[in-house]
Amino acid sequence: MSDGQQIYDGFIPGRYPIDAYGDGGFRFAEMSHRGSIVILPSGIHAWRRDETAAVSRESLEQDFNLILDIIRQEAHEIDFLFVGTGNNVVLPTNTLKQKLIESGIRSDFMQTGSALRTYNSLFEEQRRIAMAVIAVQN
């Protein structure tokens, strides 16, 4: 990277807008990443999930069991979490909704493209937002 920052185990520190998405990944910070990502105030994390598996309410809950701990660590710095669930809207299970509420995290689940547009718009306003977004093929 040109700015001297380093990536550690699927993590890049700092806040960045998402420049592009599709073909199973995302472009941000003058680089690209294949796979899903979690964007927090501290930086962007790789979200290791089975990219070939269909997204369902149950699989989304299982995926969140893996990433909820890192989201909770920064919950005090997040006013809202956007979740991009791929090409289709997949709503959370009641159990997942309850886990997010108990963590003090307000959230909205939507298609990946909608989540990215909303995130980028609020990012420009310097809002306290986070996003977990599933990569799509398009």
Rank of each mutant, 00 (worst) to 15 (best):
I78D: 01
M110S: 00
E30T: 11
K97M: 05
Q137P: 00
T85Q: 07
D50V: 07
Q126N: 15
G84Y: 06
G35S: 05
T95G: 01
V90P: 02
A53F: 09
A135I: 00
L122S: 02
Q5P: 00
S107Q: 00
G24Y: 12
R27M: 10
N65W: 06
I37Y: 07
M110Y: 02
D9S: 08
V89E: 12
E58L: 11
E77N: 11
I70A: 05
R34E: 13
G24L: 13
I78F: 07
I70T: 12
A54N: 08
D69N: 10
Y119E: 03
L60F: 08
I39A: 13
P17K: 12
R15I: 05
V55N: 04
A29I: 09
Y21C: 13
Q6V: 14
V38E: 03
E125T: 05
R48K: 14
G4P: 06
P17E: 07
R117E: 07
F80H: 15
A115C: 11
A132S: 07
K99E: 11
I105H: 02
I101M: 02
I71F: 04
R72K: 15
S103C: 09
N88Y: 09
D19I: 13
T93I: 10
A75P: 11
D23R: 15
F11Y: 14
G104F: 05
T52D: 13
A132V: 06
D69W: 06
Y119K: 04
Q6L: 11
R34W: 12
G24T: 13
S59D: 03
A135M: 03
S36N: 06
I67Q: 02
R106G: 14
R127N: 04
E125D: 15
R57G: 13
L100V: 03
E30S: 14
P41Q: 14
S103H: 00
L66K: 15
V90S: 02
I101K: 08
E102H: 10
I37K: 06
S42V: 10
I37C: 08
D108G: 03
V136Y: 00
P17C: 11
I129L: 06
Q137Y: 10
D69V: 12
R48A: 11
D79F: 03
E77G: 04
V55W: 08
I78A: 05
V90W: 02
Q73P: 01
S59G: 06
T112V: 01
N120K: 02
E58F: 07
D3I: 13
F80W: 12
L96E: 03
S32E: 15
R15T: 09
G84K: 07
M1W: 09
F109K: 01
T118R: 02
D19H: 15
A130I: 00
P13G: 14
Q98W: 00
I105Y: 04
I7W: 04
G86Q: 09
R49Q: 09
I39C: 13
H33D: 07
Q137R: 03
M131F: 00
E125K: 15
I39L: 11
E74S: 02
T85H: 04
